[in-house]
Design a protein around this nucleic acid. Structure first.
Length: 924
RNA sequence: GCGCCUGUGGUGAAAUUGGUAGACACGUCAGACUUAGGAUCUGAUGCCGUGAGGUAUGGGGGUUCGAGUCCCUCCAGGCGCACCA
């Protein structure tokens, strides 16, 4: 009986399928555990060996919990809507519905081969109308809610009319207010709202993108240029939740780096908002047609984190787009200002980012009045002040801020010094450990004291107040694309948005053969006129972004077929929060923040009982590719081996890692690639071999470094594959894939197999009674595996399996009493071989329903310990003592020891350091 | 620039609370069994040294009887944010 993994794996995968072995019931009587993977979007490329890393880890944990008696929810589904799916369909000239279906099939086939314990009866697909019906429904909950700052909760929009709420006046004083006016005002409060504003428009993708989908001024997807465009768009009011999203991070078991990313993204800063009056120039400003809040004399609001530096202000800067710029600019500066505005608006986001060091700006001709000194402060505009942050205006303190300093130097503006004993002639001082000086009533105070006092004074004079500012912006929720959830919104003849009723859901995405952009920057749905135009109203033609469906999918798995509600409350109370969520760090500020916000909203509205979706989050590392290169001597057909390449002028060419054994190129295979492109290649070898160069890069087709798990599984089996991926190193660590080490894990599984089976004889497991020593070995193993799994330290648990296998082999232990227990501990890691051997030793039932062995700590108690003896901190020898021996007896014995005496060199002992079961140190 | 993380053999990496650094593997070397082996088994393997021994966790300093682990500082790499007032 040989370890025939291919046969075994096929057999048991079929068995598990037929017997619905992974079906999970909502059995409220059992303790639950919810183990979730971030579901993939089904790309056309299929899985490479990097993808399953996290899935294997969560599978191990889920199986372990099941063996421990938990009812484990471990589902899988597909994030099938969205830009990537649509882009792939366009690239391959197919319909996204088709490609999505095909790709999902392919994914499921590949996942199936690895032997995951998913309950496929709970599969969700975000593009399925039965699913997105509820995505639309939740959108409507967001639409019909507002954030009540008093209760600090999302509430039904109706409560906004209650006494004391922002729109209480509507009902009480203006009963006849036209509905469209009320609607218009409500849009300023709804958690999902439509608003005209500057958005990230990507021409190449033909859509608006959310801030987290724009990286370094280009689209995350495809790297296309992104420009700022004024458009009417749907947004999610995630900023309302900023403080809660920030505060509750502290209690979540997320990686520190990820929490830090979210904190940075939310970007809380505490300071003050201060109003500076503007000196009114009657000759330049026509006062009569200005409304109050635009009137320049109402002043300029600035946000600062350093109110203590208020006496250091020597100029002000507005963002070029600031709405007051045109009002305050004097006649003689008008032309210069307009030119500067034109210059800045012509520059793309990317250009602006690329030249952050260049100083540019323009004087408006206007002056603000310092609230305390009454001094006139020139008002400038400059790119370095962003319209989208704070108030879009700053009070510039050149002595305390590097950018203000550089700006002042460049334009020759005064740099007043307000820090005691600090020289500002060369640079600004942003250090907060300083004493303020030259600052009237806050002189001689620390930064902290001065800030406090300055704010008090500012509030007293009613020119500003303490203020918390967040960097995070509301999330763009409109996409001018086809492949997404349609908005359940129509517009009446006045253009007022009207929500569909629950009964009208799902609003199905119409099937469009072609799905090119619609007219006037609208999405493809605008072309489907029959669908858009309904009696007296028109439908919204934008669709929702990819993150809509993924923001709540963890809830649908709990109750996937419910047609009455998105998830029954009893059921979501039972499964509750996701106990362990495993996925990549790339979703840190997108998906994870959005789903946290949706969860809080659903909680506030009473639909679920918890306001954080994920209790614990694990970011698995990325498995990178290890690329291989050949070196072609330029303009020849000759390829030179890596060690000799410096002697020639060569071009580096990626070569498929699958035709390289370690570093040695398979010459014959090389000649055959790319339709025999290199069939007459000549090689300059070293030691008779062609050695390739290497580099670690992202795994991708274009770099020929993709390793397909199917190939590995064919050669070594899924169990080896699973254990090897875990053996590579700590789960969270990124590492390159290297097929070489897999032999070690494969050898281990074969050796493990031989504990049970002999090639000639068959099963060799005996019913002999285990010795104490064997039991000790077993329970040491159980303890280690249990600990490691609970700590997600799967690399060391694989080591432990190797250790116990080596130990049992050398003990020639083939006893069922021991092996059966070890076998159960192997189930999470190598379920196929475990199931096979379970039946080999005579079990009729599946090992999946076995019970994880109970640890018996009493077997592990040692009664003696080999004490390492150190003299002056250096270990010199070992002496074994009983653990219950007194320190005096041990001290006495140690000092009598020859080796100890030798190293003490006759010097008297100063100190004898002794702790039970640890190293003994003799100090002389 | 700011924030977070990581630096240990030829390689991937171990090392609960500070307590024998390098577990477990890969690779390499030597050997056994074999017609053969990319099967299996045994042994060796951080570095220097024949040896006793010395020395070693990115560099330097510190705390301690004792530091990979704690503190300070510098260096290198990775990730994230980036004109954020």
């Amino acid at each position: 009986m040989q370890y025939n993994f291919n046969e075994i794996e096929k057999k048991w995968q079929a068995y598990w399928n037929e017997n619905n072995s992974y079906k999970v019931e909502n059995d409220f009587s059992k303790p639950k555990c919810y183990v979730l993977d971030m579901f993939p979007y089904p790309s056309g490329a299929g899985l490479h060996v990097g993808h399953p890393l996290g899935y294997i880890a969560s599978d191990i944990y889920a199986r372990y919990k099941r063996l421990k008696g938990f009812n484990v929810l471990h589902p899988m589904g597909f994030d099938a809507f969205g830009l990537p799916a649509e882009q792939y369909a366009i690239e391959t000239g197919q319909h996204p519905a088709t490609t999505t279906k095909v790709n999902i099939e392919r994914y499921k086939e590949q996942l199936g081969k690895i032997g995951f314990c998913y309950d496929w009866s709970r599969e969700v697909k975000t593009s399925d109308p039965n699913y997105y019906k509820w995505t639309q429904w939740i959108f409507l909950q967001l639409y019909n809610s507002w954030y009540n700052p008093k209760t600090n909760k999302a509430e039904k929009i109706e409560t906004i009319f209650d006494a004391g709420c922002p729109m209480s006046d509507v009902r009480n004083t203006e009963p006849d207010t036209p509905i469209s006016n009320i609607e218009h005002r409500l849009m300023e409060y709804r958690l999902a709202y439509k608003k005209e504003s500057y958005v990230n428009w990507c021409e190449a993708l033909g859509t608006v993108l959310a801030n987290d989908e724009v990286v370094n001024g280009v689209s995350e997807r495809g790297g296309h240029p992104v420009e700022r465009k004024l458009m009417s768009q749907w947004f999610l009011r995630i900023t309302a939740f900023a403080e809660r999203l920030l505060m509750s991070l502290d209690n979540l078991d997320f990686p520190e780096s990820l929490k830090e990313m979210q904190r940075n993204w939310i970007g809380k800063s505490v300071g003050a908002e201060i109003k500076f009056d503007v000196r009114c120039q009657m000759s330049d400003v026509n006062n009569t047609d200005k409304t109050d809040n635009q009137h320049p004399s109402s002043g300029i609001n600035v946000f600062t984190t350093r109110p203590d530096t208020i006496f250091g202000v020597s100029f002000m800067v507005l963002a070029p787009e600031h709405e007051l710029v045109n009002l305050i600019t004097t006649a003689d500066q008008k032309q210069a200002i307009e030119e500067y505005q034109k210059f800045t608006s012509s520059r793309s986001e990317r250009e602006r980012l690329a030249e952050t060091k260049t100083i540019s700006g323009c004087f408006t001709g206007a002056y603000a009045i310092h609230p305390f000194t009454g001094k006139e402060i020139p008002i400038w505009i400059s790119e370095y002040v962003l319209a989208s942050y704070g108030t879009g205006a700053i009070m510039a303190v050149p002595c305390g801020d590097e950018r203000d300093y550089a700006f002042a130097k460049h334009f020759n503006i005064e740099i007043p010094c307000i820090f005691k004993d600090i020289d500002n002639s060369e640079k600004a001082c942003s250090d907060k450990n300083v004493i303020i000086s030259n600052s009237d009533f806050i002189s001689d105070l620390t930064v902290k004291e001065a800030s406090k006092l300055a704010i008090e004074k500012i509030e007293e004079q009613k020119i500003g107040s303490r203020k918390v500012n967040y960097r995070m912006r509301d999330a763009g929720f409109s996409r001018q694309r086809y492949w997404g959830e349609p908005f359940p919104i129509v517009y009446d003849e006045n253009g007022t948005a009207i929500a569909l009723t629950d009964k009208e859901l799902p609003l199905e995405l119409p099937f469009l053969e072609t799905y090119s952009a619609g007219p006037n920057g609208k999405g493809p749905l605008a072309n489907a006129t029959d669908w858009v135009n309904i009696s007296q109203s028109i439908r919204e033609t934008d669709t929702m972004p990819g993150y809509a469906g993924s923001s709540w999918y963890y809830l649908r798995y709990m109750d996937p077929h419910n047609s009455e509600t998105f998830c029954d409350k009893m059921i979501s109370d039972y499964w509750n929060q996701v106990d362990v969520y495993v996925g990549g760090a790339e979703h840190a500020v997108g998906h994870l923040l959005y789903s946290r916000m949706w969860c809080k909203t659903l909680h506030d509205l009473g639909f679920i009982s918890y306001d954080e979706p994920y209790k614990k989050l694990i970011n698995q590392g990325m498995i990178g590719g290890s690329s291989r290169f050949v070196y072609r001597i330029k303009n020849t057909n000759q390829f030179v081996s890596n060690g000799l390449k410096n002697n020639y002028d060569v071009a580096e060419i990626h070569v498929d890692v699958n035709i390289v054994d370690g570093y040695e190129l398979d010459l014959e295979a090389f000649k055959k690639i790319k339709n025999n492109e290199y069939s007459n290649a000549e090689f300059i070898l070293e030691n008779g071999k062609y050695i390739c160069g290497e580099a670690f890069e992202k795994m991708s087709k274009s770099k020929y470094n993709v390793v397909n798990p199917d190939d590995i599984i064919l050669q070594y089996g899924a169990d080896t594959f699973r254990m090897y991926e875990m053996f590579l190193g700590p789960l969270e660590m990124s590492k390159p894939w290297d097929t070489k080490g897999i032999e070690g894990v494969h050898r281990f599984l074969k050796k493990f197999w031989r504990l049970f089976c002999d090639e000639a004889i068959g099963c060799i497991v005996t019913s002999e009674v285990a010795t104490t020593e064997e039991l000790k070995t077993l329970h040491k193993h159980i303890k280690k595996i249990q600990q490691d799994i609970e700590n997600f330290a799967f690399n060391t648990s694989v080591s432990q399996f190797m250790i116990i296998t080596n130990e049992l082999s050398s003990m020639h232990c083939h006893k069922k009493e021991i092996l059966e227990q070890v076998l159960i501990t192997l189930v999470p890691f190598a379920p196929h071989v475990a199931e096979e051997l379970w039946s080999v030793i005579g079990n009729q039932t599946s090992i999946l329903d076995a019970t994880f062995p109970l640890l018996n700590d009493s077997l592990l108690v040692e009664n003696s310990f080999k004490y390492p003896i150190a003299i002056q901190g250096k270990a010199r020898t070992e002496i074994e003592f009983a653990l219950d021996l007194s320190q005096e007896d041990i001290e006495h014995a140690v000092l009598k020891n020859e080796i100890v005496q030798k190293w003490m060199e006759g010097k008297p002992m100063k100190k004898f350091i002794f702790k039970k079961g640890m190293m003994i140190n003799v100090v002389v």
